[in-house]
Structure formats: structure tokens, C-alpha cells
Simulated scan of single mutants.
Amino acid sequence: MFGDPITNSKNIHQVPLGELCKLKAGKFIKAAQISDYNKGNMYPCYGGNGLRGYVEEYTHNGSYPLIGRQGALCGNVQFAEDKFYATEHAIVTRPTLEIDVIWLYIMLREMNLNRLATGAAQPGLNVGNLVELQVMHPPLSLQVEFAKKFKEIENQKRAIEDSLKLLEDNYNSLMQRAFKGQLF
């Protein structure tokens, strides 16, 4: 719908990413405070490589694309919703203009931000460079249309995954009964 976001193959109006959204790293948290499991009333904790675990407090509430800032997978883009904690290794993108956050998430994901990483031993992204990065800024109506189609596809994907899980469960049940001689 928008072409290649890196080359801007459809010549869509571009602006620096810093005009579309405010980019800010999350907050430090000790590793000992992060649990591998949600023990009830805990919040997802996102680091530079995605979900790190669960914590008892949150730093953000809403829907935000997150950009991994450090590590081999820096530049990866996650989507966090509701209440969550963002560590200092995740950059929270808070829109400053009226834009669709789903569109922003997919656009950032498709931009292969890892290509902008610097450093060999511990690659990282410089927020200053990201702020200046030229990105497409199509009309809001097209962003919303794209987000609607994306959500429809995601819902269809979930329905297929649920059907596959049910099919697998039924198959395993039949195989167990066949092995025990209960089918014939």
C-alpha cells in the first residue's frame, strides 16, 4: 500500500521520525525485579529484545511501538499495549502528531532499523540518529485504512492458529486412543 519504506518507492511525503513521535528510552530496573512468570497483577516488561518478563510496576499505559536500543537484535520493533514497563534498552515511541499507532508500528518494523546500528561488540541505536531518520507520513485516512486491514488479517491468523491447535489436540487424542486399541 505504501511501497518500500526505506527507499520510499511511492514518493510519499516524508518527515523526520522526531516530528512524528517523541523517542525516549525506558527506565532502569534491576534484573532481580523481573519475573519469568506473571504471578498475578504483574505487568509485561520490555527490554531491547522484546518481552523480558513481568514486574510489579509499570512505566507506561497505552499503545506504543517500542524499538530495541541495544544488543544483537537492536532495531527490532515490538508493540506494547495497556500497562507495561519499558527498560532503558527499549525506546518508547510516543506520537506527537495525529497518527495511527498500528501503522507507525508496522512502518517502523519494515524499516529494518538494525541497519542503523553502530558498534561491533555491543551494537546499539543512537536516539539522535533515529530522530533525524526520514520516514513516510501518508495522510491519516490511509494509515487508518491500513491499520484496519492489518487487524483483520491478524484476527484471521489467530482464528487459523486456534483451529490448528484444536486439530492437533483432536489428532493427538485419536492417536492415543488408537494406540490403546480403543478405536477398533
Rank of each mutant, 00 (worst) to 15 (best):
E81A: 10
E161T: 07
T118N: 13
L66A: 03
G128V: 13
C45A: 13
F28C: 09
T87R: 00
S163I: 05
M136E: 04
N172V: 09
F179E: 09
Q14K: 08
K157I: 10
R109K: 15
Q134N: 12
L73H: 06
R52W: 08
S173W: 03
Y37E: 15
I34E: 08
L174V: 13
E168N: 15
V15W: 03
M107I: 05
T118W: 09
F150E: 14
T59I: 04
R109S: 14
S63H: 10
I153E: 13
P138V: 01
G3L: 07
V135A: 01
D100A: 04
Q78Y: 08
Y64V: 04
D162K: 15
P44Y: 00
E88H: 04
C74Q: 03
I153G: 01
K24L: 09
Q143W: 01
K24Q: 14
N38Y: 07
I99G: 04
K165F: 09
N129W: 09
K165V: 08
E88C: 11
L73R: 06
H60Y: 06
A86Q: 00
L20G: 00
M111R: 13
Q122V: 13
T96A: 08
D100K: 00
L164V: 03
N172K: 15
H89K: 15
Q176W: 03
G47L: 03
M42Q: 14
Y46H: 01
N49R: 10
N112F: 06
H13R: 11
N8V: 01
S9E: 08
P139A: 07
E110P: 01
I91C: 01
G71K: 06
A32I: 11
N38E: 12
E161F: 09
D100R: 02
V55L: 08
K24T: 14
T96E: 12
T59S: 15
G26F: 02
C21T: 05
A121R: 09
A25M: 10
N11W: 03
C45Y: 01
I12V: 10
Y58C: 06
H13P: 02
